[in-house]
Design a protein around this nucleic acid. Structure first.
Length: 576
RNA sequence: UGGGGCGUCGUCAAGCGGCUAAGACACAGGAUUUUGGUUCCUGCAUUCGGAGGUUCGAAUCCUCCCGCCCCAGCCA
């Protein structure tokens, strides 16, 4: 088996999708034999929250590049801040990466695995005279760092001897000093125009237990020190991160150069994903969870991978979305409609069709023999003939969607109305003879209709046409279910942009969740298992809720609606 | 007022000095349709943030200007 190392040479030259700028760099490096032609990437989440659709972009990029260039991609937890990180998050992250369809094989790593080596690297830096222990308080360090326009001033402890620094650093490690009393700093340049380079902190004292190393350490390295060295330790060739780390690249390079790391990794930055009508900052997502605006990280309204999964998104759709959005350095906000498009594209191809009535309206077919029932044949998936057909029971009393009947319909209405004839899908043509209303409320309680026995299956032998086709469920055979209708969590394009006296929480869409009970489903759905997905004809794609659904008490989540051109027509009509 | 980035259709995004500035989503029309779904056609940037310049030729090179994003955690 030959590793597809020449993907680099051929990709983009035969009318395929052009390579993004990072893949171009990788392809050039491979062609030039940089790192011996080896490609190694990593996905480095901090286990302090759940993964979201923005992480999916990074996961697809890193694992995708490894796959494409015959390289490897590691999963590495960036767990250098024990006060924020939890084991529960490392579990969920692994579940999500695997669900998305990627495999790190035996390359599961933790920055905390390297604490010993990192400590020795720090000692080496001190020995080179490139790091020192600073006794100043956090506040003093902040004060002396200067501002964006004014240089900082050196710490009074900056010129301690190597011996003293070594002694102090070791005693920091041994727990001799209280939290916050001292830090290890790189000795670079307090006047550097890049603030990151003004003697950045490398280690801090934090006497808290780490979720993996327990009480073994009381000093912990900071991101800038740990990340580049973790990359180097793992032999990463291309260290891909988001744009906000661009300023940190100078420090990334300084540390590896100063420590004389051979064959060092290079950092490349790309623009993080923004999506309309959603928030993707960890702080905001945590706030939605903590303030119980949503029901946990896996609430189907959340843009987390666990939320999307529970909502019914497929990994295929998400991966395809990540392929389509591209990778570039320009700030960008992708239209949520593209995500929905990718979802529908996948579900349309694969979802079995089924009939379900969400807001039932009873309909009695007066000329259909009392007590008679029959079985009709329905197509499971018109996109996939191999999916076959299924039997669907029919009878004198059925339920149709309340929305499918109007007493006084507007123009272009194809559905049922008094005197109108429509088709019941796979069944018969029916004509509405009467709408029975409750004299007190005026609400329609029942429809009376007649059917044409000659139209069995849905075709009229006389060639007569009807404009509308309705879905329905036979009353005698229907099963009941709860259905949860989901919509965008925010109705505005950019929830991050709020008036100063308001919070993004004020922009949460109160109609993002509508719970419907007493929905009527065709009987075959009784066998549906958690995670199964379907198209409820004419309504949308739905899946069995993985958490709350029970046999005999099914709960379905609406993943996404079907495209609805009638809604558009209606909207246009109401405007004009 | 320092440093680092970025500006190509409503939204993403190709383009890397020389064919009419790809493609996708969105949007607008139309055809087919037993899902107002799917599918299929058609349309959608005489112009690349702006102004100058170099060149036979500029979205691509140069200069200046404008706008937006990131950086002053012992977070990542």
């Amino acid at each position: 088996m030959v590793a597809p190392k020449n993907d680099a040479a051929t990709a983009g030259t035969e009318g395929q999708k052009p390579l993004d700028f990072i893949r171009q760099i990788v392809a050039e490096d491979v062609a030039a034999g940089v790192h011996g032609g080896r490609v190694a990437t990593r996905f480095p989440p901090e286990p302090n929250g759940f993964l979201h659709i923005g992480h999916a972009k990074s996961i697809c990029l890193n694992f995708g590049i490894a796959r494409q260039f015959g390289g490897t991609c590691n999963l590495r937890f960036d767990d250098t801040n024990p006060s924020k990180e939890e084991m529960a998050y490392v579990e969920s992250i692994q579940t999500d990466v695997r669900w998305l369809g990627f495999d790190w094989e035996d390359r599961l790593f933790y920055a905390s695995d390297y604490f010993d080596r990192l400590y020795r690297f720090a000692v080496a830096l001190i020995e080179k005279g490139k790091a020192y222990v600073d006794d100043q308080s956090a506040e003093q360090i902040r004060q002396s760092r200067g501002t964006l326009t004014r240089p900082g001033i050196p710490s009074p402890y900056r010129d301690r001897s190597v011996a003293e620094n070594l002694d102090l650093f070791e005693r920091m490690k041994n727990g001799e000093f209280p939290d916050g009393s001292r830090v290890l700093r790189a000795k670079i340049d307090m006047a550097n125009a890049n603030v990151v380079m003004r003697d950045p902190t490398l280690y801090r004292i934090r006497k808290v237990a780490h979720h993996r190393t327990g009480d073994h350490w009381c000093i912990y390295p900071l991101y800038d020190f740990a990340h580049c060295l973790s990359d180097a330790i793992e032999g990463i060739t291309h260290s891909i991160c988001t744009m906000e780390f661009e300023n940190n690249r100078e420090l990334y390079d300084w540390i590896l150069e100063t420590l004389e790391i051979p064959d060092r990794p290079r950092q490349y930055e790309f623009a993080r994903l923004n999506l309309t009508r959603t928030v993707l900052s960890k702080r905001k997502l945590l706030q939605l969870v903590d303030e119980k605006i949503v029901d946990g990280w896996d609430d189907p309204r959340m843009p987390t991978l666990s939320g999307l999964r529970r909502r019914g998104f497929t990994p295929e759709a998400i991966r395809n979305f990540c392929d389509r959005i591209g990778v570039a350095r320009a700030q960008s906000t992708v239209d949520y409609a593209l995500l929905e498009h990718c979802l529908r594209e996948d579900l349309n191809r694969r979802a079995p069709r089924v009939m379900a009535v969400l807001r039932p309206l009873k309909l009695v077919i007066e000329n259909y023999p009392q007590g008679q029932t029959e079985t009709l044949e329905a197509i499971n998936n018109p996109e996939d003939p191999a999916a076959g057909t299924r039997p669907v029971p029919f009878g004198r009393e059925i339920y149709i969607e309340r929305d499918d009947f109007m007493v006084d319909p507007p123009k272009k209405w194809f559905r049922l109305a008094p005197g109108r004839e429509v088709r019941l899908r796979y069944a018969y043509f029916i004509t509405c003879t009467e709408a029975v209303t409750d004299p007190k409320t005026g609400e329609i309680t029942e429809l009376r209709c007649t059917y044409d026995p000659a139209t069995r299956g849905g075709d009229a032998p006389d060639g007569r046409k009807v404009k509308g086709t309705l879905h329905w469920v036979a009353a005698h055979a229907a099963i009941a279910a709860e259905v949860r209708l989901y919509d965008n969590l925010f109705t505005v394009d950019n929830p991050a942009e709020v008036a100063e006296d308001k919070s993004f929480l004020d922009l949460v869409n109160p109609e993002a969740l509508t719970v419907l009970d007493g929905c009527r489903l065709e009987p075959g759905l009784a066998a549906a298992a958690p995670g199964d997905f379907f198209q409820f004809e004419r309504l949308g794609y739905f899946c069995v809720d993985a958490k709350d659904s029970r046999p005999g008490r099914p709960v379905f989540n609406r993943t996404v609606t079907l495209r609805d051109t009638w809604a558009k027509i209606k909207q246009k009509q109401s405007k004009s």
